[in-house]
Design a binder for these strands. Structure first.
Lengths: 211, 211
DNA sequence: GTCTATAACTAGATAGAC
DNA sequence: GTCTATCTAGTTATAGAC
């Protein structure tokens, strides 16, 4: 009950870490308890002292992953310098989301990668946390729109889904070292706020619009 | 050898359709041959007359899905009205990609959804088609940038990944009837070219930048 | 071509020793 | 708490009848 962890708590955490890592890499159904146990330096049967079933283990990994990214984005909003613009706020949220997803955390990336392939009842129990996280983003964007930092003639829900897609898809291709998270956030926010198009000059006959 | 399909070809196609649909819904590892067979009105053992293994079936589903979206985007570029701008070209590609992914095709959506969870050797053989599709997009974007339709001070590869992410992620949330593909393409291209930000007015003391 | 039957294997889960 | 041994169920794949 102090800050010391019991042996049980330590093992439990080791199992969860191993599960998050393996689920993220191989997906849910393709991951066996034998692999998780091996990654946690244990025998498969020993897992059942800590968890009732594979699904129970999955559920906890998913919940932890979603809570972590939720908290990271929430904190990014609380720690902004006073007088920050709405663009600053959104940029901070984007960076917090990406950082959690790509640098810190097998739990969050496991959640994002395998959510579409989990058993129905696990999904049903987990969905509240997902909805709460979506609501956090919704509030950030709506506030920006109401303050006229974002256009009013758009479907903000759709924008949110496209934005989350661009960010979440990075778990499928991101390789540490190649691109920095800063650069990714820069590009994402540039697209979101200003776009990367240039006003094409008035058409003249010499324009190469087809070639 | 005529336009008539042999009984074998018909069955084969039925199996592939069933496999694409089931893979898309449940993922690769979680899908059993028994389910695929049932969806194709067959017994599991009968599948082996047409395919050598589950992996072989998977591979063909993946390849078909990638070829279809590739062809759809390629055709979208060939059928543009003369004098189309680069924005028009990109917009057409976005729409073709989304349409294939969300309306026409279990094969393409299966490919996008399960690519991250397939066996290593299948992935290795399939990757060429993926790379070719990426190259098609790269060319479209580079051409636009060289013609000064897109800013030159950006990492176009990164933009491409963010764009594909925004589009591909839609397989995880899109529900037919709620949003039209037109609307999705509109929003995506608006973000890509112009952004949805409004220049925030010069800061004054009464601005509510924090609340 | 498709069926039925089944072989060979692997998974998740349980029980009892330590 | 963890291990070893094992049960049960379900999977891919094969074989031979029709």
């Amino acid at each position: 009950m102090t800050t010391e962890q019991s042996k049980s708590e330590i093992s439990r955490a080791r199992i969860l870490d191993a599960a998050a890592k393996t689920f993220r890499q191989k997906g849910y159904a393709a991951t066996t308890l034998i692999e998780i146990a091996r990654a946690a330096d244990m025998q498969a049967g020993s897992l059942y002292y800590h968890f009732g079933s594979k699904d129970e283990l999955l559920e906890e990994v998913l919940d932890i992953g979603m809570r972590r990214v939720h908290e990271a984005v929430e904190e990014s909003q609380e720690h902004l310098p006073p007088g920050s613009s709405h663009r600053d706020r959104i940029r901070a949220a984007v960076e917090a989301h990406l950082t959690t997803l790509l640098k810190l955390d097998d739990y969050t990336s496991a959640n994002i990668r395998i959510f579409g392939q989990i058993p129905e009842d696990v999904r049903r129990r987990h969905i509240r946390l997902r909805d709460a996280y979506a609501e956090l983003w919704r509030r950030i964007l709506v506030k920006a729109q109401k303050s006229r930092a974002l256009r009013s003639d758009i479907d903000l829900g759709l924008v949110r889904m496209l934005l989350m897609g661009a960010l979440n898809w990075s778990v499928e291709w991101y390789q540490p070292g190649r691109t920095s998270i800063q650069t990714m956030a820069d590009h994402m926010c540039l697209m979101l706020f200003s776009g990367i198009g240039i006003d094409e000059p008035a058409r003249s006959s010499e324009d190469e619009t087809v070639a």
